[in-house]
């Protein structure tokens, strides 16, 4: 640990720790917009500038590492600079909430009491319509923090989004303005997960008027591969339906990252094809809806019949990696002592 001074008080930090983290560790919150711990320091939005003795200009806390004896100030002119920078961003922020995702810029503006003194005449960006049905993008919400692009480049290391152009024309678009579906994009939605303003958002919620913050979150484990990503199922309290899947950087196995299936393939849960009634095959050879009592009796009778006519060894039980440990435990118990066979296995035996 090293010692430094923060707002006139002694403070300690780890060697080479980013100032933004060191300040937080010592109880001083420094706002950031373009910073993301997953990404290389960028220092673009300048929201996190702090005074550092010996430097003629304030330095970005997201890209400056603490050194022993450093004297850091978040007072003096820093609050005014933050407010001005916020005003600047607001002056071209034409749409604050296209898809119900949280907007950190709006939160910050509220906290700092910042309002746009003008609307830039060239603030309006060309709208971007995409035929993909997963991710929406509202350029007028974008603050060009470049987090999404950097996520694709540094974390996914694929080519999906580009920071295009220079000057007032600069904007973020899928590479060469193609559809997301026609770039190398793997539709993981990582871009929207790092977007601080909700400019990229889940299309499911476009125009639904449902805000992420009103949703009920249940933390669980993803069902699509062996990585065990920790996810939050976001449920609309009215309809009791999952409306989106999110994750958090502090979740161990996946650090908030998800893939296309984990983030976007949840509608199967509510699909009309879901089985909602037991079915029993009738005399006519067709499956017919039945009560649970009838179906369970039919299942038990059928299995008992096979045991009676042959033996328990004539029954095979196939459990599944789709199921929980508890369910699989009960299934093998049922096979072994309910039916009397050790023939319980599954197709995921590799």
């Amino acid at each position: 640990m090293i010692e430094f001074t923060l707002d006139g008080r002694p403070a300690s930090a780890q060697e080479d720790e980013l100032l933004v983290h060191a300040a937080a560790r010592n109880g001083v919150f420094v706002p950031t917009l373009c910073h993301d711990d997953k990404l290389d320091p960028y220092g673009g939005c300048r929201m996190c500038v702090v005074g550092v003795e010996g430097s003629s200009r304030p330095l970005p806390a997201c890209a400056t590492r603490v050194s022993a004896g450093m004297v850091v100030s978040t007072n003096s002119n820093v609050p005014q600079l933050r407010k001005t920078l916020t005003e600047m961003l607001l002056s071209e922020h034409l749409n604050a909430n296209p898809g119900g995702r949280p907007n950190e810029l709006v939160d910050l503006a509220r906290e700092l009491g910042a309002e746009a003194p003008l609307v830039l005449p060239d603030a309006k960006r060309e709208p971007y319509a995409d035929r993909n049905r997963l991710m929406g993008y509202e350029p007028d919400t974008c603050i060009l923090c470049n987090r999404c692009v950097r996520y694709t480049q540094e974390v996914m290391q694929c080519s999906a989004l580009s920071l295009e152009g220079r000057g007032p024309e600069a904007r973020i678009v899928p590479t060469w303005e193609r559809s997301w579906l026609d770039t190398e994009c793997e539709l993981c939605g990582g871009c929207l997960s790092v977007c601080p303003t909700g400019a990229i958002y889940e299309k499911f919620l476009e125009g639904a008027g449902v805000e992420e913050r009103q949703l009920e979150q249940t933390k669980t484990t993803c069902t699509f591969c062996g990585v065990g990503c920790q996810i939050d199922l976001n449920v609309d309290p009215e309809t009791k339906r999952i409306v989106k899947v999110t994750s958090k950087p502090e979740y161990v196995s996946n650090e908030g990252d998800l893939c296309v299936k984990g983030r976007f393939s949840f509608n199967f849960v509510h699909h009309p094809d879901r089985l909602t009634e037991p079915l029993v095959r009738g005399e006519d050879g067709e499956l017919h809806p039945a009560t649970w009592e009838a179906a369970l009796a039919a299942a038990a009778d059928g299995l008992k019949g096979v045991i009676r006519r042959h033996s328990a060894q004539a029954i095979g039980v196939l459990a599944s990696a789709r199921l929980t440990n508890e369910e699989n435990y009960l299934i093998q118990k049922l096979a072994r002592i309910g039916l009397g066979t050790n023939s319980v296995h599954s197709c995921e035996a590799t």
């Binding site: 673009g44 939005c45 300048r46 961003l89 002056s91 830039l120 220079r166 600069a170």
Partner: peptide, 11 residues
């Protein structure tokens, strides 16, 4: 000519 990286210059 602003490269658009930082807020104060860009806006």
């Amino acid at each position: 000519e602003s490269c658009q990286k930082c807020t104060p210059c860009r806006i």
